[in-house]
Simulated scan of single mutants.
Amino acid sequence: MERNVWRTSSRSGSNGQCVEVRDRGTAIDVRDSKAPTAGTLSFGPASWDAFVSSIKTDHRRP
């Protein structure tokens, strides 16, 4: 992932309900694409990896 560039998931639909993510190297930031100036959540790299892994695991459950 290129650093300091906001990205929207390729799985996001066109309904406008998306989050954007950027990798700053030392942290991963997440914001609401509809309200980009409303603030961000920041995760350390290890926390972000754990979060993404848990989503992938939960998504595979029946």
Rank of each mutant, 00 (worst) to 15 (best):
R61S: 15
R11F: 12
S33K: 04
W6Q: 03
D29R: 00
T37W: 07
I28F: 06
T40H: 07
S53Q: 11
G44P: 03
R7A: 14
T8R: 10
C18M: 00
V30P: 11
S47M: 08
T26A: 14
T37G: 05
A50I: 03
F43S: 05
A27M: 12
A38L: 00
S14T: 15
G39Y: 01
S33I: 00
T26Y: 09
N4Y: 11
V21Y: 04
P45V: 05
P36V: 03
I55G: 08
R3K: 15
P62R: 11
R11A: 02
L41H: 10
D49T: 14
T37R: 14
M1W: 06
N15D: 08
R22P: 06
S47D: 14
F51H: 10
M1H: 11
P62N: 10
A50S: 13
D23C: 11
V5R: 12
D32N: 06
I28D: 07
S33Q: 00
D32V: 02
T37S: 08
R7F: 13
D58A: 15
V30Q: 09
A46Q: 07
V52F: 08
W6M: 05
I55N: 00
F51S: 03
S42F: 08
F43T: 10
G25F: 11
I55Q: 01
T37L: 12
D49Q: 13
A50Y: 07
G39N: 02
N15Q: 07
S54A: 08
S12D: 04
R24E: 15
S54C: 05
R31Q: 03
R7H: 15
S42L: 04
S47L: 11
G25R: 09
R22M: 10
F43N: 01
K34D: 00
N15M: 00
S33L: 05
D58Y: 12
D29P: 06
C18T: 04
W6Y: 04
H59C: 12
S33C: 04
S10W: 03
S9V: 00
G25A: 07
A46D: 14
N4I: 09
K56G: 11
D23R: 12
S14C: 08
T57E: 14
P36W: 09
G39L: 05
D49K: 14
S47G: 15
S10F: 06
E2W: 09
K34C: 01
R61F: 13
A46V: 14
V30S: 05
S53Y: 08
L41S: 08
A46F: 07
T57D: 14
R3N: 14
S47E: 15
H59K: 12
Q17Y: 03
R11W: 13
G44R: 13
D49C: 01
M1S: 13
I28K: 01
T40C: 09
V21H: 05
F43A: 07
H59Q: 13
D58Q: 12
R3P: 07
W48K: 04
W6C: 05
K56D: 03
R22V: 10
P45T: 10
L41T: 06
A35C: 06
Q17W: 01
R22W: 06
P45N: 11
F51W: 09
M1P: 10
